[in-house]
Simulated scan of single mutants.
Amino acid sequence: MKQKTLTLKQLYKVGTVKLAEEGIEEFSLDAWYLLEYVTGVSKAMYFAEPERAVSEENADRYIDCIRRRAAHIPLQHITGEQEFMGYPFCVNEHVLIPRQDTEILVEEAIQVMRPKMKVLDMCTGSGCIVLSILKMCREKYYMTDLQGIGADVSEEALKVARENGRRLGVPVTWIQSDLFAKIPEEEKYDVIVSNPPYIETAVIDTLQEEVRLHDPYIALDGKEDGLYFYRRIISEAGKYLKTQGKLMFEIGCDQAEAVEELMKNAGYEQITVKKDLAGLDRVVYGTLQ
């Protein structure tokens, strides 16, 4: 017997009910995003024609997407994309999904960029930080002569970063490296930015299922106290920064004091802490003397 054709409204209801049953926090919003992703229907079109029939093929695709989201697979892993700084970035299980909190780091970095500067993004992942810095500096401030380098230990992550660079039309040099291991010492940078793994190992098992099961573990694990990578980067970065160069980090909301102390002990001055939109400490940066 042929399956009854479903309308947009009916299909959306199926999605919201299923996601709500499985405890998805933003079940209504996620069900909508997946409907838009599968059918290409905007909200204006939906409200104009909620009774529009959906093809059997698209209905099946939508139900499959809902099934995957109900299993707590991140929405972005289903659609393959996440917006960051207004740009679309492709993502998958090999990279941390770009988050709005990280935009604070990009915004602060843009403020210190000047023509002909060279920026290194350590633990680059999807490349969203360095690519957004270069893209926005080009579009807003006409700085077309900046150089960007993105380094990550994961070759799979760098594949994603390369694709994002291609899609955004931003040239960046990508280097597979365990932190500074393969970064030539003769290279000197004006700015080093980093969103390193900073979650305490013992805390990872308490995170949302979407994060602990689907974000790459190596992008989360900051070892016992969450500060392992800050220590390593701060201890080595001085060899790669120009005098008066900036070292800029995203941090966990309770790590500002510890990271600030590490930077002071390593000779950084003018150390600044910036808060995110929720009023939590999110970025720490300082100047190498």
Rank of each mutant, 00 (worst) to 15 (best):
S235M: 10
S177P: 13
A181R: 07
Q10I: 11
Y37V: 02
S42W: 03
V170W: 15
F89D: 05
V211R: 00
D281V: 11
I73P: 00
S55I: 00
S55M: 00
V119Y: 05
Q255G: 00
F180A: 12
R67Y: 05
E186F: 06
E93H: 09
C123N: 03
V160Y: 02
E250H: 07
G148D: 10
L227S: 00
R166L: 15
R68S: 13
E81W: 00
V38E: 08
E236D: 12
H214V: 01
L11T: 10
A161M: 04
I218G: 06
T79K: 05
A256M: 02
C253I: 02
F47G: 13
P197M: 08
C65G: 01
E51D: 09
R114C: 10
E210Q: 06
K274R: 13
C90Y: 14
V193G: 04
V38H: 05
V170K: 13
G125L: 10
E187A: 04
D190C: 02
D152F: 09
M117A: 08
A53N: 12
G80I: 03
L262T: 06
Y230G: 01
L134V: 09
M117G: 06
I63E: 10
L288I: 03
K275I: 11
L96D: 03
C128H: 02
Y198P: 06
K246Q: 07
E57P: 00
L6Q: 14
R231D: 01
A70G: 10
K264T: 13
R114G: 12
V203H: 15
V191F: 10
C90S: 15
F249W: 08
E103Y: 11
H214T: 05
K223M: 13
Y141V: 03
T173C: 09
A157E: 08
V14N: 08
V38Q: 05
T5I: 15
T124N: 06
L96G: 01
G86I: 02
K13L: 10
K274M: 10
